[in-house]
Computed example of a mutant assay.
Amino acid sequence: MLKRTATLLWRALAVVCIVAGLVGVLLPVVPTVPFLLAAAWAAGRGWPELEARMLAHPRYGPPIVRWRERGAVPRRAKWFACVGMACSGALVWLTPLPLWFKVALPSVLLCVGIWLCSRPDE
């Protein structure tokens, strides 16, 4: 019973991540590949058939495989992500949000950008 529940939860997480990835295909602001990486990870724990289909996908399979093998991120994706995070961090200063948030968000984005740029290129 517990194993079946865990399998269903992994499958549900995989489906939610795939749906979020599909939203990313339609909306350029939402990333696609990170959600598909998470979906493949979850599918690998509860839905091996779906994981195999994702890895075999002609467009999205290779980035998942490269990430799993080397933690590689394409240079173009790094640039887009860093520019997007820089714009978001700058735009937050134009909003009426509290000062702590105006400092915290760009700080987190900077840390993510540094980590992302430290990943190997494809």
Rank of each mutant, 00 (worst) to 15 (best):
A86N: 06
R68Q: 13
E51L: 15
H57E: 12
F35Q: 09
T7Y: 00
A6C: 04
V30M: 13
S107G: 15
I64R: 06
L26Y: 11
A39E: 04
R4Y: 11
L110E: 03
M54T: 09
L37P: 07
L99I: 08
S118P: 02
R53Y: 09
W115K: 07
W100A: 14
S88H: 09
G46Y: 09
E69I: 01
L13C: 12
W79L: 13
C82G: 08
W41D: 12
I64P: 01
E122V: 14
F101W: 13
P120Y: 04
L105H: 04
A104H: 01
W93A: 09
Y60H: 09
L8P: 00
K3W: 05
C17T: 01
G89V: 03
L97M: 11
L2C: 01
L110S: 11
R66L: 09
W79A: 12
P62G: 13
R76F: 01
V25R: 05
W79G: 02
L9E: 02
L50Q: 10
P96E: 12
L9G: 00
A42P: 11
W100N: 10
G89T: 07
V83D: 00
C17A: 14
L22C: 14
L37D: 11
M85Q: 06
W10R: 05
L27R: 11
L22P: 04
I114P: 10
W93V: 04
L105Y: 10
I114C: 11
A52E: 14
V92I: 15
V65M: 05
W67Y: 07
G21A: 05
E69H: 09
F80P: 00
G89K: 10
R11D: 00
R11G: 15
L91D: 00
A72L: 03
R66Q: 09
C87L: 15
A39N: 09
P74L: 02
M85W: 12
A20T: 12
P74F: 02
D121I: 07
L8R: 13
V108D: 01
L26S: 13
G24F: 04
F80E: 00
V73K: 03
C111V: 13
V15Y: 07
W93D: 06
R11S: 12
L91W: 12
L109I: 04
L105A: 12
V33W: 08
Y60N: 02
P31H: 08
V103Y: 07
W115A: 10
L22Q: 08
C87R: 00
A6R: 07
P74N: 02
I18D: 01
R59C: 05
R75M: 09
L36M: 11
A12E: 00
T95V: 12
V30A: 11
R68A: 09
L36E: 04
C17Y: 02
R119P: 01
L37W: 07
K78I: 02
G61D: 13
A40Y: 05
P74V: 01
A20Y: 02
L37C: 10
C17R: 04
A20P: 12
W93M: 04
L9R: 07
C82S: 13
A86L: 14
L110V: 10
M1G: 15
R76H: 01
S107V: 08
A90C: 10
W67M: 09
W115N: 10
R53D: 14
V33T: 15
K78G: 03
S88N: 06
G21W: 00
S107A: 15
K78M: 02
L13P: 01
P58K: 01
V30D: 13
A39Y: 06
R68G: 11
W115V: 11
C111M: 12
L37G: 08
M85I: 06
A90Y: 04
G61V: 06
P106E: 00
